[in-house]
């Protein structure tokens, strides 16, 4: 088994599924790159190289470059999914959903229900999210809560290369529309990833650390930070369970509730803006269903309610960090009524 990056893991998942199933296609802006241009073909492989190498293997007919025209090509992906293909469309930055949200939340999400069950829409929309790239307010948002809010969509937020590959293959094989969130600063992190195809089911949280004192729920890139904090605090005798939901829709509340029943203490770490995000959603569910088990108030670690700033000094203040998580965990661990 070789170490592979988050980027390679996703690329490998796409290639394996395209080999397995001729109805799988990928499309997006510069997914190959250089379409119609005088220079190299496969010039970009997507803006951050995730789809590099697919076009030479599968051809322009299955790796489609698109005009910068998100409404049209995201809608086309949805329409193609409803009529027999399994498209994987790349919405370069999730912030750009502002120009194509209708096709996702009014069309893709609703076909099955509106049509009385007589539709399947197996589309995957890959998109980059998250701060830390000095990309400022329109290229840095963490918008998975907005998609999680929509019935009919599934929302995947992988936190590691292993998970990214297995969740992507599941997303492609899944018959429902899936929004697949890739954190732009995670593409180069590496770990052991099997060469073979495998699937990770949706709605099954991962337990990346196991401890009896505090439950930390963290999503996407925040899982790394939570793991770091758990390892640090374990040396001080504070043992944390770290739960990575992997998918925010469906959401594995059972695993979270079971853990909180055991620890009585919860910290939720979410890179999304603080109002109506996964932290508030999970906290509310825990307060509703595990109130009696709580030994301390729930703590949420999130960015402030501001756009993502540009200046590095400001952005570093914006993104939740391990020190903030550690402070929150120590506070709930040391809480006394």
């Amino acid at each position: 088994m070789a170490k592979k990056s988050y980027r390679q893991a996703i690329n490998e998942a796409l290639a394996l599924e395209m080999r397995r199933d001729p109805t799988v296609i990928v499309m997006g802006e510069d997914n190959a790159g250089g379409m119609g241009a005088p220079g190299a073909d496969d010039a970009w492989g997507g803006v951050l190289g995730v789809t590099m190498g697919l076009m030479p293997e599968f051809g322009r007919e299955r790796v489609l470059d698109t005009p910068i025209s998100e409404s049209a090509f995201i809608g086309a992906a949805v329409g193609a999914a409803a009529t027999g293909l399994r498209p994987v469309a790349e919405l370069m930055f999730v912030d750009f959903m502002g120009v194509c949200f209708d096709q996702i939340f009014n069309q893709a999400a609703k076909f099955k229900y509106m049509f009385g069950g007589n539709a399947v829409t197996p589309v995957v929309i890959r998109t980059m999210y998250g701060a830390g790239f000095r990309a400022a307010s329109q290229h840095s948002q963490t918008l998975y809560p907005m998609f999680t809010h929509i019935p009919g969509l599934k929302v995947v937020v992988p936190s590691s290369p292993y998970d990214a590959k297995g969740l992507m293959i599941q997303a492609i094989r899944d018959d429902d529309p899936v929004i697949f969130f890739e954190h732009k600063v995670m593409y180069d992190i590496e770990e052991e990833v099997p060469d073979e195809a495998y699937t990770i089911p949706f709605g099954e949280a991962n337990l990346t650390r196991e401890g009896e004192d505090v439950t930390i729920v963290a999503i996407g890139r925040m899982v790394q930070f939570a793991n770091e904090v758990a390892d640090t605090l374990a040396k001080d005798g504070i043992n944390c369970s770290v739960i990575d939901p992997r998918t925010t829709s469906p959401l594995d509340m059972d695993t979270i509730l079971e853990s909180v029943e055991e620890t009585g203490r919860l910290v939720v770490v979410d890179e999304a803006s603080p109002r109506c995000n996964m932290a508030t959603d999970i906290s509310a569910a825990v307060a509703q269903h595990a109130f009696a088990a709580l030994k301390a108030p729930i703590r949420m670690v999130t960015p402030p309610h501001t756009p993502v700033p540009f200046a590095p000094q400001l952005e570093d203040l914006y993104v939740p960090n391990p020190a903030q998580i550690e402070t929150a965990v120590r506070a709930v661990a040391g809480y006394a009524r």
Binding site: A72, F73, G75, L85, N106, F115
Partner: peptide
């Protein structure tokens, strides 16, 4: 809608249909 008849749906969103139709054409 009746996808078995190739009818992809009336659409409550004005202008919602053309991108979807491009998708059906792409499938074909």
């Amino acid at each position: 809608a009746d996808l078995s008849k190739g009818m992809m749906g009336a659409n409550g969103i004005v202008g919602g249909g053309p991108p979807l139709v491009c998708g059906a054409a792409l499938t074909a």
